[in-house]
Design a protein around this nucleic acid. Structure first.
Lengths: 260, 260
DNA sequence: TAATAAATGTCGTTT
DNA sequence: AAACGACGTTTATTA
């Protein structure tokens, strides 16, 4: 055989057939996929009960476990990585207990019928890259401040103030101190309130005019109302806009943008 | 055959063998599970790129799709239910496009090698019940107000005020108006700020003393500091406590608690 | 549809 | 370990 067998697949196995395959798969740090009729009980931060039905259950080598029903994006039950699995064949069925000692959480899956048991050795070590995050919008404005407005000069990024971090502080074309808050999705009232919290601190520290600009692809009606009431400003900018700008950048470090 | 074949499992199939099975599985509203080497590109609210590696990919009958790496609880890429799947065999491999027209989102999965293709008809219609939610904590306090403090009399639940909904409003033993905010996990500063927003409205509307009580299993140091600064109070109460109380309730409607 | 808050949120980062 | 904020948050609820 050219390719050594890197997966074991059992179709409608008996519980007895399955138990050793599952145990070995878990102990050898494989990804174990089980489809079958089961109940699931969870107890920890909350507690839950799921009566018998057919589900897809996944145990990963890092100790994460997922129970998926045939609908919905999110698992009905789960435990995050770092959990410990115990597999046992009992009178009633094949029981897999998932523990997290630290969090005092447990999830118990009891199978009565199996449609499939699959054990695989998935090799996957490449990087995952997410583009057009809020950080990237920030980078884009620092790289090309005209994106915000003509003549804007960034001074600091992520300045620490009491309530948190101000995304960008700089001076506008007339030399007025300007606080910039960036959101990558439509801005709501919460975003304006966050900006206000920063402004409260800035206004307290300095005794001179300060502008506040909220940058986002869009803004809700309520948020715009509050924004204008507070005398702040809105600048429409999408992650895609920023992504385009960053394509020109290519590897210049962020520190390069803070030269005189 | 006693049990009609309710699943199709292909082990290390060729892309050509797999494509028809996948297409049929999707069109017949089955759960389709694919393990294999693939790349994943996402474009929508953000965009992402995942280079070639071995992953577990799930397509559900409701139009949700998940891409799982061999680590982590959360999928590396996904689309929620209501998405549309397009499967196509091209020169480079087996490509499955997942669309959400409304959200202008797409995820493209391109397989070059397959370890497994499994198509199942999972029957799962029972209810899932989760205990010890915030709503249950609220119900417990309404059922047995002494849980909050002796002599407390609830007046309304979920009173609508401008910022949102106040969990419980009532009168304490001395007849002072009392606002109750409930959190099912350790309360942080954000919870106190939320309570403050409610109090700002209440204090504005009424010109008399008002108490504010934050109910949670625990509270962070910063949050407690802010809470006391504002003159509010903290009452420790766990979801488990409340769950115990509710076991005595057994089906009495909530409205039954608002009698003179 | 928009806004608002809960979630077994999870995840990363900083203190 | 604790606290805090971001997330392609998702999900439910309500105006």
């Amino acid at each position: 055989m050219e390719h050594p067998q890197r997966q074991t697949i059992l179709q409608t196995p008996s519980l007895k057939e399955a138990v050793e395959v599952i145990k070995q798969g878990i102990s050898r740090h494989r990804t174990v996929i089980i489809a079958g009729k089961c109940t699931v009980d969870y107890d920890g931060r909350a507690s839950s009960k799921l009566e018998s039905g057919e589900r897809l259950v996944i145990f990963k080598p890092d100790g994460s476990a997922l129970v998926h029903r045939p609908k919905d994006y999110s698992p009905v039950n789960w435990q995050p990585s770092g959990s410990i699995f115990h597999t046992k064949l009992v009178q009633d069925g094949l029981v897999i207990r998932v523990f997290r000692r630290k969090e005092k959480e447990s999830m118990v899956i009891a199978f009565t019928e199996l449609q499939m048991v699959s054990v695989m050795d998935l090799k996957d070590n490449v990087e995952f890259t997410l583009y057009a995050s809020e950080k990237e919008m920030q980078e884009a404005i620092l790289y090309k401040p005209d994106l915000l407005e003509s003549g804007f000069r960034p001074m600091t990024k992520e300045m620490a103030v009491d309530p948190g971090f101000i995304d960008i502080i700089g001076y506008d074309a007339t030399g007025t101190l300007t606080v910039v808050e960036i959101k990558r999705v439509k801005a709501n009232k919460k975003a304006v309130e966050q900006l206000k919290k920063y402004m409260d601190v800035i206004d307290l520290d300095e005794n001179r005019p300060v502008r506040a600009i909220l940058v986002a692809p869009d803004i809700t009606g309520d948020a715009l109302e509050l924004l204008l009431e507070l005398g702040y400003e809105f600048k429409a900018l999408t992650p895609q806009n920023c992504s385009e700008v960053l394509k020109q950048k290519k590897g210049k470090p962020l520190t390069a943008f803070f030269n005189p």
